[in-house]
Amino acid sequence: MTRDGGTNGAVVRVAAVGDIHLSPDCRGLLRPSFATLPLCADVLLLAGDLTRHGTVPEAEVVAEEVRDLGVPVVAVLGNHDYHSEQEADVARVLGDAGVTVLEGDRVLLPIGGGKVGIAGAKGFCGGFAGSSAGEFGEREMKDFVRAARREADGLYRALSGMDAEGCGARIALTHFAPVPDTLAGEPVEIYPFLGSYLLAEAIDEAGADLAVHGHAHLGTEHGMTAGGVRVRNVAQPVIGKAFALYHLPLVPTPVHPTPGEPPAEPASR
């Protein structure tokens, strides 16, 4: 159970992976494993860095890996997917293959009698509380910090309102890390380039049941925000598999009368 209300044992089965860094030499690499997803998962999350250089031919390789999988596929892009400044084309190619690409927005999926909300944003770097970059000085420095703030604001907006929409499980999907816990194994000196505490702040303030990210290849899988939200680093080198699998409790959506119909008669008077 993640919030008030029971789940009756219901779960959403979340498959997730990031940092697959595909290019034409990797065609078909993950498809055999992804083809098993309908048997074990309700949704596949892709946590960015899906391509090597962010080109259309690379995005086409990713698209073929996940096309017609039989489960919904929801993605955010990562810094590699922006490298060639063709991120809109990368997102379009993935969208044409049926992938929902999120950037500061959310998707609600009806799964197993409940509603699963996934809020996504690439996120950005800047560091963690106590050792983070400040919005001060040169324009370049201020732009850097503002970029992180914009990403966190987008994630906050996407997460907010999921309760009102009746989501029984809320997932925050980013590429950059919201907490330093899942960076353990990376050189401490580069933590400020791996994530931002602003993402964790957005997750804790808006509320979520699970936060999934990638980016830190040498990090570790498990972490938690200050507010107690579980964080999972699903960068493929970290999880050591084609995808990680999480069973997340799902609060079933209450059954409401159809709009326009009179409310059901109470069982007894």
């Binding site: 690499l29 993950l30 494993s33 080198p237 598999k241 084609a242 990680a244």
Partner: peptide, 15 residues
């Protein structure tokens, strides 16, 4: 190392 492309053998249960 080369990344493993096999599916996982079990899920993590998040309670």
């Amino acid at each position: 190392l080369i990344a493993c492309a096999d599916p996982p053998d079990r899920p993590e249960e998040l309670s």
